[in-house]
Design a protein around this nucleic acid. Structure first.
Length: 296
DNA sequence: AACATAACAGTCGT
DNA sequence: TACGACTGTTATGT
């Protein structure tokens, strides 16, 4: 399996020694708390896509504090993007391209940590998730509870259908609208819909699937914003699933707090993706997948 | 009418 | 032991 680990940009003015010591103490704390020892990450290198190893930061303990500092509820902040996200620089993003056998991904850190922290807090308060029938899916003829929480927001009248459920789009809450505008600005695409997936801990998950719904605009990449707990995410070529016709390695990467992943066409025609359970990843993850839906 | 399945359960290896 | 990787579903929609 190819594991792509994307190194975050070094920030100016940071004492690397202090950072290293902090990472060691965070890991020690994690080991104590979970009883699970994180061994050093094995670095597997794919010839055309060399990534550098970075420490994995699972520490989300500062979320509450920074959210209060930012005061995300001041409504004026959301009237102008530059005010809403004062530290979000969109002109200097460090994009990483991952491409192989019709897989085409672009990955970057989008939100500075403090803004990403605030967004987690805001969305935990503002978003409502489906219950009842809309919280179930039908697979292989059987109904199951979705092993995570979902919500959909979008322009008036839009619906999104998959796996036996048809979800109506709610109107955009202000902070979600602000993120949409930022994602549109960064990507140059006009997204009119978002599917929100909330993973309460490492046992929440999403199985392998393709985003190949008929009412998705095939030209527009799906833009996935990750907030909270970093989680592994993998892609698997359709012909590498049983019965195995081709030997194509999975591509796995870790979606970081505040990151943006673009799944460019034709990725979704050939590759499945999944968010497997990770029992040692204790925190909440909120994922926003922005899409362009073709109006019927 | 093929064909795929956003889920789980069971097995196996570490 | 628990977790992760891997299989095989199964009866409906499309």
């Amino acid at each position: 399996m190819n594991r792509y680990i994307v190194k975050t940009k070094k920030q100016p003015g940071i004492d690397e020694g202090a950072l290293k010591r902090k990472k060691q103490s965070v890991q020690k704390f994690h080991d104590l708390k979970t009883g699970v020892k994180i061994t050093s990450q094995k670095q597997l290198i794919c010839e055309e896509n060399i990534r550098k190893v970075d420490g994995v930061d699972h520490d989300t303990s500062e979320l509450k504090k920074t959210a209060e500092l930012i005061d995300p509820y001041s409504s004026y902040l959301y009237k102008n993007l530059d005010l809403a996200f004062p530290s979000v620089r969109t002109d200097n993003l460090q994009w990483r391209k991952i491409s192989k056998d019709n897989l085409d991904l672009d990955y970057t850190l989008l939100f500075p940590r403090n803004v990403a922290n605030a967004l987690v807090q805001v969305f935990e308060k503002e978003l409502d998730y489906f219950t009842g029938t809309l919280a179930k899916v039908k697979i292989f003829g059987k109904w199951h509870d979705i092993p995570r929480k979902q919500a959909t927001y979008g322009d008036p009248g839009l619906t999104y259908k998959y796996s036996g459920i048809k979800t109506p789009a709610r109107p955009w809450p202000q902070p979600l609208e602000a993120v949409r505008e930022l994602v549109c600005k960064v990507t140059g695409h006009k997204y009119n819909f978002v599917l929100v997936n909330r993973y309460k801990d490492g046992s929440d998950k999403m199985g392998e699937h393709k985003d190949d719904e008929k009412d998705l605009d095939a030209q527009t990449p799906i833009a996935s914003v990750s907030l909270g707990q970093p989680r592994d995410f993998y892609f698997r070529h359709q012909d590498a699933r049983p019965p195995k016709k081709l030997n194509i390695d999975k591509v796995q990467l870790q979606l970081q707090h505040g990151s943006l992943l673009l799944m460019n066409p034709p990725t979704n025609q050939y590759w499945y993706h999944a968010l497997p359970p990770r029992k040692s990843a204790p925190g909440i993850r909120i994922n926003l997948t922005f899409r362009k839906i073709i109006q019927n």
